[in-house]
């Protein structure tokens, strides 16, 4: 199907470019003074976190439009965005500790971005579990939309909670925010990485969307038998 091929190309290009990011980050970008080599993971970590959160907002928006327009394409997009978001959240949750350990000696810290991403991951897992648990396609789309909207509304509250938590319990900042204090070479690498992750998101979503469409056709043809 043409769409899958397009999606595969985008993802492939993005992955190649991702390798490029690695190379640039490791070889061409200067080492950060205070955090050393471990800081380099920031080039992967932060763009992934940004997309983990953006994907949730997109799920929420698509869900709102779905409830008004009842267009199944919006539901397919929401499902794809949720899966992509879950992947990116998982990337953050694995790279975060890898970064944290050499600096702070612990695998996990209640760092703001890490905690928010953990929430996002749990929301995605819930969303995908709910989709898996409902057999009727119409109900599945509606329920997922309801949950998606609630998830999107929750995100600002989580931001607030995390901010307050850290105000009450000040903790070392594991993640340097993408502040303008970055020297140009680091900024360039970071922006490049953000672009690559955007491409990755698009690639994943396109492929997953096409898969959804194919699966729906298959269910329609076989009457949904033999599908777990």
């Amino acid at each position: 199907m043409k769409m899958i091929r397009v999606g595969r190309w985008i993802t492939a290009i993005a992955l190649v470019l991702l390798a490029g990011v690695y190379v640039r980050a490791l070889v061409y970008t200067p080492v950060e003074r205070s955090q050393g080599l471990a800081q380099k993971i920031f080039y992967l970590h932060v763009p992934a976190a940004i997309w983990a959160e953006t994907a949730m907002v997109l799920v929420g928006l698509a869900s709102i439009f779905y409830l008004f327009l009842k267009d199944p394409r919006l539901d397919r997009f929401a499902e794809s965005s949720a899966e992509a978001g879950a992947v990116f959240a998982a990337v953050v949750l694995t790279t975060g500790p890898i970064w944290g350990k050499p600096i702070w000696g612990t695998w996990w810290s209640w760092d703001a971005r890490l905690t928010l991403t953990l929430f996002l991951f749990l929301l995605y897992v819930g969303y995908l579990l709910l989709r898996g648990a409902v057999a009727d396609p119409g109900a599945r789309a509606r329920y997922a939309a309801v949950l998606g909207i609630c998830g999107m509304v929750l995100v600002p509250f989580v931001h607030l909670s995390v901010y307050m938590f850290r105000t009450l319990h000040p903790m070392p900042i594991v993640l340097k925010p993408s502040a303008p204090s970055l020297p140009p070479s680091m900024l360039a690498t970071w922006l490049f990485s953000l672009l690559v992750f955007t491409l990755l998101y698009v690639g994943f979503v396109v492929q997953r969307y096409a898969l959804s469409y194919l699966r729906e056709q298959l269910e329609a043809a076989t009457g949904g038998i033999g599908h777990a």
Partner: peptide, 29 residues
């Protein structure tokens, strides 16, 4: 939504927990 799914008693807490944690935190504080 969960009442008609399989494992309803398990699915509801899983869906609900992210939504209960912020009020839980503020109330505890």
């Amino acid at each position: 939504m969960t009442v008609r799914t399989r494992f309803a008693e398990l699915l509801l807490p899983v869906l609900l927990l992210p939504f209960m944690i912020p009020p839980l935190m503020w109330a505890a504080w």
